[in-house]
Design a protein around this nucleic acid. Structure first.
Length: 555
RNA sequence: GGCCCUAUGGUCAAGCGGUUAAGACGCAGCCCUCUCACGGCUGAAUCCGGGGUUCGAUUCCCCGUAGGGUCACCA
């Protein structure tokens, strides 16, 4: 299979982009095919500078790499902004001569193209589109249209009033078959125009005819034939999506177009264009959309109002790429989870994604599920690797903490590794920001006594317990000996050494050993909820343990 | 509004004419237990409605209904 991703460089990378990229990537990789990146920059108004390299980097964070097409490479060192080099051009291009107007990455990346089907920027394929448009023009399948915005608005108003289908078609297509001399004259005098597809070039008799398309996900689809004179070349000479899609995916030999359901309704236009040009259409796979529950109703994840729809949200919080991929995989093919359960240690790329098993309903994005998957994924990653991951995150997102973490890297690693050995590892870790918070108290700079004492525990009582604990503290004790001492301390102060004792005879005790350990835990970690005290102490080291206990016992 | 897509618990969903209607997340309870997390067990919770077809429909067909998508010189 040859698949592609065709994003427009608007500076916003949607979760949906990643979803689509992942499906396309897996499909190509599984079949030994090619997955390429084409930049659909035909809307100059929406274009954002630096969006292309940001897009590539954003996707790369989640492990999306392209075999062909637009990519990023190390800076050529020219230092000039606005320069592009084309890989494999043999030095024939000087920096800045390519003219695509892209940045020479401020952080060392240069946008390049590779592959035999270029250019992969639609804005650089103008002449190609013009050639095919001319062909349609010559064959009477397209025409110049000089309708102004006002005229179109009037037409629409009339159509609305008459409850007719809006758009340019039939009798409303007044430039269809216009006098050639008049057209030439208008062009000559510089009147702006667009090229429209003539939906009735095969004769208006086709009205009511329907088309049947075999969708890779949805099976056989029956839709009415296109009857709108859709614009294929805009006033500025650039193609619309519809035309660029048809021309490019034909020329670039895309075999499978995986795209969102929002394209379903323009499928008839695309089929008509393929037919008019005499091209074979690719296999279409229209995926369900990612939705969000909003006030009780489902709706498409929106980039304007839903922060979690942006890839940058997950990068900023430091979600692990593997976790996000696995979550997406469970959404892409629901049998993935089952597979993962029986293959806990196999690389997720071994799982075969199939379009037939993709849902077509539109699913809610489930952050809980992502987090749950993330816990499992992170539990399988060695602490050393996680420490590096957190450091990368901190360098990027929390620079003020980076030096501290880097300096205390061994502490960071040990802290992240708490309770993870053995058959039933703890699964406390979810994403980098959360991991940082989870271990922050190990670093003096972030140690805070945040939590209040447990209910009913007075400060003097806590102070007495801590003083007693400090007196008997021996850093060299093993875990059993250590806890034995905690029990003794508890008993000496009127607390049940075992929770069960307290449960059975609540009137005999002030509380149980858990209350005592909570006071200790709070003194050491600043919180009443944290992992095993013994391990925390071992990581903190004797000096800091005594220091924190001493400080807390005086309050 | 037209056209199109979709419809199983709160969520993701198995199912593909006869099932006690899987599983996962979440939720509740219990167990384990120094708190938490992990783990174990248990539980509550689903076939949108109405017609057909059929000996029998969650499953097939039709009609509603609901949700979504789309109706640009944006993709």
């Amino acid at each position: 299979m040859r698949t592609r991703l065709g994003p427009s460089p608007t500076g916003f990378i949607h979760l949906g982009n990643l979803f689509m990229a992942l499906v396309n990537q897996r499909l190509a990789a599984q079949s030994g095919g090619v997955f390429y990146l084409r930049i659909e920059d035909t809307d100059q108004k929406r274009e954002v500078e630096g969006a292309v390299s940001e897009l590539i980097r954003g996707l790369a964070y989640f492990g999306i790499e392209f075999d062909e097409g637009v990519g990023l490479t190390e800076c050529c060192g020219c230092g000039l902004s606005g320069s592009v080099v084309v890989e494999g051009c043999g030095g024939g291009f000087e920096c800045g001569q390519n003219g695509n107007g892209l940045e020479c990455g401020s952080n060392g990346g240069v946008v390049v193209e590779r592959g035999a089907y270029g250019p992969y920027f639609q804005s650089a394929r103008r002449e190609i589109y013009h050639g095919f448009a001319q062909r349609l023009l010559d064959e009477g399948k397209a025409y110049h249209c000089f309708l102004t915005e006002d005229e179109i608005a009037d037409i629409r108003k009339k159509q609305e009033a008459a409850k007719e289908l809006p758009g340019i078609y039939g009798a409303y297509a007044k430039w269809r078959g216009a006098d050639a001399d008049l057209v030439a004259e208008k062009i000559q005098s510089g009147d702006p125009y667009v090229i429209r597809f003539n939906a009735d070039h095969e004769g208006a008799a086709c009205e009511g005819e329907s088309i049947v398309v075999a969708d890779g996900i949805r099976g056989e689809l029956t839709m009415p034939r296109n009857n709108l004179d859709t614009v294929i070349l805009k006033k500025d000479g650039l193609p619309t999506y519809h035309f660029a899609h048809v021309v490019d995916d034909h020329l670039m030999e895309t075999t499978h177009v995986v795209r969102g359901e929002e394209w379903l309704s323009s499928l008839p236009i695309h089929i008509s264009l393929f037919r008019a040009l005499g091209f074979e259409p690719p296999v279409y796979c229209h995926t369900a959309l990612l939705m969000k529950l909003d006030g009780g109703i489902k709706r498409k994840l929106s980039k304007r109002t839903d922060p979690e729809s942006a890839l940058s949200y997950y990068i900023a919080d430091g979600y692990h790429p593997i976790a996000v991929r696995e979550y997406l995989l469970t959404v892409i093919n629901s049998n993935y989870e089952e597979w993962r359960l029986s293959n806990p240690d196999v690389d997720s790329n071994v799982f075969e994604v199939t379009t037939e098993k993709m849902g077509s309903a539109g699913m809610l994005f489930d952050l809980d599920k992502l987090q749950n998957i993330s816990r499992d994924v992170l539990a399988r990653i060695p602490a050393g690797e996680l420490a590096g991951f957190v450091l990368d995150w901190a360098e990027r997102e929390k620079p003020e903490a980076f030096a501290t973490l880097l300096e205390g890297r061994d502490v960071l690693e040990a802290a992240l590794d708490i309770g993870r050995a053995g058959e039933k590892p703890r699964k406390d870790l979810v994403y980098a920001a959360q991991m940082f918070d989870f271990v922050s108290y190990f670093f003096d700079a972030y140690f805070r006594m945040d939590d209040p004492l447990p209910e009913g525990m007075s400060e003097s009582e806590a102070g007495a317990l801590l003083t007693g604990y400090l007196e008997s503290y021996d850093h060299a004790d093993d875990r059993d000996r250590w806890f034995e001492k905690v029990r003794e301390l508890a008993f000496a102060h009127g607390y049940a050494p075992k929770p069960k004792d307290y449960k059975n005879n609540p009137e005999m005790y002030k509380g149980h050993v858990g209350d005592v350990s909570t006071v200790i835990r709070r003194a050491l970690a600043g919180r009443c909820v944290a992992p095993d005290i013994y391990e925390i102490q071992q990581i903190l080291g004797e000096e800091r343990v005594r220091g924190r206990l001493g400080v807390a016992s005086l309050i």
